[in-house]
Amino acid sequence: MHSLSEPKDYKESRFLSHRLKSSLGQAIIYIFLIAAVVTILLPFLWMISASLKLDKDVFRFPIEWIPANPQWDNYVKIWTQIPFLTFFSNTAKLTIIITLLQLFTCSFAGYAFAKLKFKGRDILFLAYVASIAIPWQSYMVPQFILMRKLVLVDTHLGLILLQSFSAFGVFLMRQFFINIPNDIVDAARIDGLSEYGIYFRIMLPLSKPAIATLTIFSTVFVWNDFMGPLIYLNSQSLKTIQLGLRMFIQQYSANYSLIMAASLVSLIPVTILFLVFQRFFVEGIATTGING
């Protein structure tokens, strides 16, 4: 149970035995953590390894973690056997447009909810919060019917319109703006800055962490979204990478190494984004989580 001892104990311990016990505790923690990391990342390591093998070798046991004869060719084949490039660019297009629109509309509305006064603001905000808690699936059918009436099914525009006005984004931006002191806003108003001026010259530059958080949330969501495209996109030329991946799995169910290569490629963009911005992401989750 020494793993739970406080850092202070460690520093304050004057007795050798105590210190020895502490460093033993530390060693145990490291062993635990390393074991946990290996277990958690094992599926990804196996994915990398399998993607460089011949199909017949993928399941050979004991596992050959580093293939003796890496099949780099697999990474060429995936682009030719199915229209992977089309899926990739469709997903990139949707991700970029939806993220930009979310940033624009959510930060605008978030600012109004945090710093402006208007009639019905609390009720309206309650509707936003409620919609986050209600499962999307409970209104997916009426939403689909509406989209069909508007002739937006099987179009990218349809998905863009569905996902660009995120209630969660508004909530996140508001939680951030509300922590910016009102004095700053009031001082700017007295100096004669318009509300737009305050937003663009003061709030926006201050809200970089929130913007970064929303960017990552939105990108990860849109890039990985499966159910939205599954319901709304039918034409081959419009499909996204997640649908493409599933199609690949269904059509070439025995081409294990190609499936692993395609899966790996589909993970790369989000992985890069995550590694670059992960500090913001983690902080963003922590703040929205605790304030929520």
Binding site: A36, V37, I40, L41, P43, F44, W46, M47, V220, W223, N224, F226, I241, Q242, L245, R246, I249, I259, M260, S263, L264, S266, L267, V270, T271, F274, Q278, V282
Partner: peptide, 15 residues
Amino acid sequence: FFFPYVASLVAVAVV
């Protein structure tokens, strides 16, 4: 530890 959370479900499910 956080990485599986951002990984796409389809890729995760297939592996």
